[in-house]
Amino acid sequence: MALSKTEAIVLRTRRQGETSKILSLYTQHYGRISVMAKGARSIKSRYGGVLEPQTHIGLVFYRYETRELQYLSQAEIISPFAKLHEQLGRMAMAAIPCEMVERNEANGHVNPALFHLLLSTLTVIDGAEKGYRNAVRAFMVRYMEHSGFKPEFAHCRGCGQKQRSDGAFFDFSKGGFVCDACSGTLGEGQKLSAAVLERLHYFLQAPLEKSVQVSVDAAQGREMDRFLLSYMQYHIETLHHLNSIIYLDKIQSTLRIVKPDEQRKQYGDSE
């Protein structure tokens, strides 16, 4: 057993017993871990709001290498992501990358770059004036890169030719688009417009905080979201039926009182 110190994003919390919580964390130095926080739900808990989902914390914990469950010693808030917790749309968006990491990252698999990607995604969702939905899209593209399925949006997988103005067919198994000449027998995939290919390529290359400035209209947004989910699910079994995506659809469809444009803005879609 060793006292270990690291930074983490709280992905999810579960009640344990009368007053405790088990936290699912993605840490900078130890990957995904589960930590027991004794007494964290008691009204006099010294942790207060520190151990809530989608916060950036610093922690010290008792680390048992052979065990699944670790024990919390101390925790403090590094960033509470206050705005993210005050708006339904931002909160729903932030849940998506958290659920992806929580579901798909195995215990003990360490990836500091993924920690930083998740942290900057939540920072953008919290801080951006608008367009933060693009940060989730950029996260998804980058997450596929981290998982070994880096998509190729700029050049044909077959001949390396640059994409043309009329879009192209993205072949899921090849992880990239293929031009007409190279297509041969088409596998499972989706036809993407040039505008969407261009934007996805930008999300893969540019710093994440720049993604919010990219304009995405409603049709492009739908095309992109359908593609991202299908591509992720084609390669990664655990990313099927993400609860956070179903949740987002539900709150959007039940709050249809506002105008569609207004609605898009509320969920961080850029104009």
């Binding site: 992905l11 999810r12 989902p53 909160m91 729903a92 849940a95 998506i96 958290c98 659920e99 929580e102 609860n243 956070s244 179903i246 949740y247 987002l248 539900k250 709150i251 039940t254």
Partner: peptide, 14 residues
């Protein structure tokens, strides 16, 4: 409501 647990408005008495 809890997005990661899949609890949305229609799972509650809203």
């Amino acid at each position: 409501m809890s997005p990661l647990d899949g609890i949305g408005p229609d799972n509650l008495k809203m």
